[in-house]
Simulated scan of single mutants.
Amino acid sequence: MQVLVDADACPVVVKEMLYRAAQRLEVCVTLVANKFLRTPPSRFIRALQVPAGFDAADDRIVELVIHGDLVITADIPLAAAALEKGAYVLDPRGSWFSRENIQERLTMRDVMEQLRSSGIDTGGPAPYAAQDSKAFAGQLDRFLARHVSP
């Protein structure tokens, strides 16, 4: 089992939690981004820089992910593709994507995109807050306790 991170928009606090988990549990964490990422020196942590381009990082994650991996992303189409490959998908705010909720989330994303393209200001996500970090940490810890042997 490996952890793949859609790192371009991933909050720093989430990356730091993942770095600590990688070291503590000796699990491979791979961050994929369009830009250079500085990561701590570790045999369990690597960063992959992909060429700039629409969905280049997402496409690379889909290529790498296998059944049972954990993907960290807020990107709904990427989450859907990872679920199709049998991965677990957690967003940086601590919510799980699942086969049961992905279609609803894709539909809502499409509706919001249509509203924005017609000129309606839909706002954006709330700023990342301490409760998001806490929720993510709790979900990550529970997942790793169940899926990674010490």
Score class of each variant (00 low, 15 high):
residue 67 H to K: 13
residue 96 W to A: 02
residue 140 L to D: 03
residue 92 P to G: 09
residue 39 T to A: 10
residue 36 F to W: 13
residue 122 T to R: 07
residue 42 S to L: 07
residue 3 V to C: 00
residue 99 R to V: 01
residue 120 I to W: 06
residue 88 Y to N: 09
residue 23 Q to K: 08
residue 86 G to A: 04
residue 136 F to K: 02
residue 144 L to T: 05
residue 66 I to K: 15
residue 35 K to T: 15
residue 103 Q to V: 07
residue 110 D to P: 00
residue 121 D to I: 01
residue 115 L to T: 00
residue 128 Y to E: 13
residue 128 Y to D: 13
residue 98 S to I: 02
residue 106 L to D: 08
residue 109 R to T: 01
residue 58 D to F: 05
residue 150 P to I: 12
residue 34 N to H: 08
residue 106 L to R: 14
residue 124 G to C: 09
residue 108 M to W: 13
residue 150 P to E: 12
residue 14 V to W: 07
residue 74 A to H: 11
residue 113 E to V: 00
residue 148 V to G: 09
residue 149 S to P: 10
residue 66 I to L: 13
residue 114 Q to H: 11
residue 129 A to V: 11
residue 61 I to N: 01
residue 86 G to N: 06
residue 43 R to M: 03
residue 31 L to W: 02
residue 38 R to Y: 11
residue 138 G to Q: 11
residue 56 A to S: 14
residue 138 G to D: 11
residue 56 A to P: 00
residue 108 M to N: 13
residue 74 A to M: 06
residue 19 Y to A: 06
residue 136 F to Y: 09
residue 9 A to K: 04
residue 27 V to M: 08
residue 93 R to F: 04
residue 54 F to H: 11
residue 88 Y to F: 15
residue 86 G to S: 02
residue 5 V to R: 05
residue 98 S to D: 02
residue 116 R to G: 07
residue 67 H to Y: 06
residue 149 S to I: 14
residue 72 I to A: 10
residue 74 A to R: 10
residue 70 L to G: 04
residue 140 L to W: 01
residue 94 G to C: 05
residue 88 Y to C: 08
residue 62 V to T: 14
residue 89 V to G: 06
residue 128 Y to T: 11
residue 136 F to P: 06
residue 69 D to E: 11
residue 128 Y to M: 12
residue 28 C to A: 09
residue 75 D to Q: 04
residue 132 D to F: 00
residue 112 M to K: 13
residue 126 A to Y: 01
residue 133 S to M: 07
residue 81 A to M: 10
residue 30 T to W: 03
residue 31 L to I: 01
residue 106 L to N: 10
residue 20 R to P: 02
residue 150 P to W: 12
residue 46 R to H: 09
residue 1 M to F: 07
residue 105 R to L: 15
residue 107 T to W: 08
residue 72 I to P: 07
residue 74 A to C: 03
residue 129 A to Y: 03
residue 95 S to L: 01
residue 127 P to M: 02
residue 73 T to E: 14
residue 95 S to E: 10
residue 17 M to L: 15
residue 4 L to Y: 10
residue 21 A to C: 12
residue 30 T to Q: 08
residue 119 G to P: 07
residue 35 K to W: 12
residue 93 R to C: 05
residue 143 F to I: 10
residue 17 M to W: 05
residue 25 L to Q: 06
residue 103 Q to H: 13
residue 98 S to L: 04
residue 135 A to Q: 14
residue 72 I to C: 08
residue 103 Q to N: 13
residue 52 A to D: 08
residue 12 V to F: 11
residue 2 Q to H: 05
residue 118 S to R: 14
residue 143 F to M: 10
residue 127 P to H: 05
